[in-house]
């Protein structure tokens, strides 16, 4: 039995020298995968969930419109449209899309996708007004940004 009681000479401590390496690896992963938010969103954004999601292939072709109730009271309580950093009216969408299209190269202009980030509570009237304007400027590819629904 004494055989088993033999004391090993190896140290009991776990070497922590490689810990920074692991943390750095995680750090780089997050640095690479995440994008710093460029715009401050001034409207409420409770994005609805859906199951049949499609992924956008080319992010460079995407422009974002945010619809929702303004977060600050000074802008009123009615849902508003936010593009980039400012609130715009429905009639300004035509100009905005044209500006967004100008940022793309000649061949890609017709492939522009408008991602609509719309709050749950927004009424369809406003959404439809936006869509009509988008049709008007021939930006017909749209994407209703939604979250993944876990219920199904």
């Amino acid at each position: 039995m004494a055989k088993f009681k033999k004391k090993s000479n190896t140290s009991q401590e776990i070497p922590t020298a490689s810990l920074p390496d692991i943390i750095f690896m995680l750090l780089f992963f997050f640095m690479v995968t995440t994008v710093l938010r460029e715009t401050t969103i001034n409207v409420e954004q409770r994005i609805p969930a859906a199951t049949e999601l499609r992924k956008l292939q080319r992010k460079s072709l995407v422009s974002y419109l945010y619809l929702g109730k303004p977060k600050q009271g000074q802008w009123g309580t009615q849902p508003k449209i936010q593009a980039n950093d400012v609130f715009i009216e429905t009639k300004d969408i035509v100009l905005w899309v044209t500006q967004e299209k100008d940022k793309l190269s000649e061949v890609e202009r017709d492939q522009i996708t408008i991602a609509l980030k719309i709050d749950k509570e927004v009424k369809m009237g406003l959404v439809s007004d936006v869509q009509l304007e988008l049709r008007e400027v021939n930006a017909r590819k749209i994407l209703y940004t939604t979250a993944q629904d876990m219920d199904y």
Partner: peptide, 17 residues
């Protein structure tokens, strides 16, 4: 500070003008 960008959703092609 970072949010993972979600570019997923329901895609739709609007009818032509």
């Amino acid at each position: 500070t970072t949010t993972i960008a979600n570019d997923k959703g329901l895609s739709l092609l609007l009818p032509p003008k």
